[in-house]
């Protein structure tokens, strides 16, 4: 069950994994990819109707790595390409059953763009959202 919703298809000037510099006369400021991933992950989780991030495998591995203290749920289900001035963000989400997927997707996109620009100063060239699953209340009890 996957629905991909793409905001735009602008090209992002990538930098091959290295941080994108913001030049000033007194030096450069760079933002690592991990920062952008975390900001996007936190912003996505802030949206009402989002139950979790990541595909089934990512969530299972994430739960295990978090239990042993090496994982970070805030970057789970998020991948980014960061350029010098803009970033492209892909998020995989599980949405609560009964919520409107288009509305939740719009809210995710809006919040990610707002947080990304506010914290990192980067423009979001695109925010691609994949709805990987629906969460039904009571799912966890059945699994136990």
């Amino acid at each position: 069950m996957a629905d991909t919703d793409t905001a735009s298809s602008k090209e992002v000037t990538t930098r091959g994994g290295a941080p994108g510099p913001l030049q000033s006369e007194r030096g450069t400021t760079t933002i690592a990819d991990a920062v952008v991933e975390k900001v996007a992950g936190i912003a996505t989780r802030e949206v009402a109707g989002v139950h979790d991030l990541g595909g089934g495998a990512a969530r299972a591995v994430g739960a295990m790595t978090q239990r042993v203290g090496i994982g970070d749920e805030r970057t789970q289900g998020v991948s980014v390409e960061v350029g010098e001035r803009e970033a492209a963000i892909d998020v995989v989400v599980v949405i609560e059953y009964g919520e409107s997927i288009p509305k939740v997707s719009d809210s995710i996109r809006e919040n990610v763009i707002k947080r990304l620009e506010g914290i990192t100063g980067l423009q979001a060239a695109e925010v691609n959202i994949t709805v990987n699953d629906l969460y039904f209340p009571g799912d966890e009890e059945q699994q136990e």
Partner: peptide
């Protein structure tokens, strides 16, 4: 000299 600042994580 120049001061380069990299934010590696938050």
């Amino acid at each position: 000299g120049p001061i380069h600042i990299a934010f590696e994580d938050i």
